[in-house]
Nucleic acid binder design. Structure first.
Lengths: 253, 253
DNA sequence: TCTAAACGATGACGCTGCGTCAACCGCAAG
DNA sequence: CTTGCGGTTGACGCAGCGTCATCGTTTAGA
């Protein structure tokens, strides 16, 4: 089955302008231009547009989407599976906002006390999770390594030199983490240096640093199995936990 | 407790630029400007910012947010309750996307068949629900009648004359619906005229019409109790159901 | 006390992803 | 042929900031 702009826009719930814009920027070309000059889309473009809409739903910018879906090692099934995971994250985020709003209502009824910090739960955590999910190595593993190399760099808004620097910092972080783990004490000077390196690594992505956010992110490392697996696979069993403990201590000083 | 820009940005997980921009557009003024020219925010602004972030999470534009929160009859508790309902809607929307992605995965494994239409479930429904939720009378009831009058008009991008026209069409719709209901037959010519009027009413908000979308919206009228209550309260018990049945018949022709 | 770093300010430019509009061609039905 | 709906390209504008430059203020440590 083939579609013109109007029919595809209707099918997918997007505007005709959107489809023309996507053609213009090379994100979604029609299968052909017919004799009248009309854009004609096929099944292949339908599947591509579905992918685009999932990425869009997950707040990925169009340039990045383009890099991902047109790379040689793009795997549609794998991408769908990753979309699923991300949507589950998003669902969790909304659950947190629902908790927040419930508690805010109760606070207004004088049933509970609420700190200023608690009033923003779900908004702040989103930012931390989003930054890490977007900027960390995990997205590379998820969507395909080489596919996302350039996309990730763009994510970060880093130039070549800065990117190299960040990779170097991460490398030293891994080494230092491995060595500090052998000592077994997450409050040792070596562990503190590890946490400091982690902070330095974050500085490439975060415009503002806070100990609270740092500690919050570290908690995620042990609660989200993808993050745990990332570090444990790189360094060894228990690396994410050790890093979390080090950062917790570091941020309490 | 008071906050400078940095501290409030950190607390809330927004950028300093955002806070300055919100001050500039009159959305969130600081409590005072101190002797150094620094913005100083208090508890009151914290609560306002929380509201703003909830509205932002629900994709309400800043101009509209401003109209709502600064109206004389703005009720914080009631707004929080409405945010809760909207967040539940959003959660439902994500659940639908999760169903979609699961089915897409299974279709790739050849376990099920999937139509092109099914591939966009969750994307299209979102648009319908969003349009209706934003453009219908319900938001007025929810957040405060007079508060949203101008905001709603802006939502629609309608000028004064078009707005009056739309209200007139809705009025005729109610009358026609009431009369058709008395006949009891949702396939009668009167019922078809009702559905046609409903379609005309939609034309003020929808840039493109499809029978499918029309039917989908009508289904929502009986599945979402707020929509059901809206019509039943206006016309009488069973109005939403009757309207749904009429539209279903109308869109099958 | 001095200094450096971090805080704050304003002004201005630019970006992303379209929405809207104008002008014009193609298609189908009456 | 006419009308209404479909399509096209080109171009301007918008919302909501991100980024940068320049300069004043505050804070903590030597």
């Amino acid at each position: 089955m083939t579609y013109t702009v109007h029919k595809l826009a209707e099918l997918a719930g997007v505007s005709k302008r959107t489809l023309r814009y996507y053609d213009q920027i090379g994100l979604l070309h029609p299968a052909e231009i017919n004799a009248s000059g009309y854009r004609i889309y096929t099944e292949k473009e339908v599947d591509l547009l579905q992918q685009i809409l999932f990425f869009r739903e997950l707040d990925v910018d169009l340039d990045t989407i383009k890099s991902i879906i047109y790379s040689a090692d793009f795997d549609r099934k794998k991408a769908l599976e990753e979309h699923r995971d991300r949507l589950l994250d998003k669902q969790e985020h909304i659950r947190m906002l629902l908790e927040n709003v419930e508690k805010s209502i109760q606070a207004m009824e004088r049933k509970v006390e609420m700190t200023d910090n608690e009033k923003f739960i779900g908004f702040k955590e989103e930012k931390i999770a989003e930054n890490e999910a977007n900027y960390g190595e995990e997205i590379r593993e998820a969507y395909g390594k080489e596919a996302v190399e350039v996309a990730n760099q763009k994510f970060r808004g880093l130039n070549e030199e800065q990117y190299r620097k960040m990779e170097a910092v991460e490398q030293r972080l891994f080494e230092k983490l491995k060595r500090a783990m052998q000592g077994g004490d997450p409050t040792s000077p070596g562990a503190m240096q590890t946490a400091e390196l982690h902070r330095e690594w974050l500085s490439f992505n975060w415009s503002a640093y806070s100990k609270e956010a740092h500690a919050g992110l570290a908690e995620m490392y042990v609660h989200d199995e993808r993050f745990t697996a990332y570090y444990d696979n790189k360094i060894g069993e228990g690396a994410a936990q050790f890093l979390r403990d080090s950062i917790r201590h570091y941020t309490m000083q």
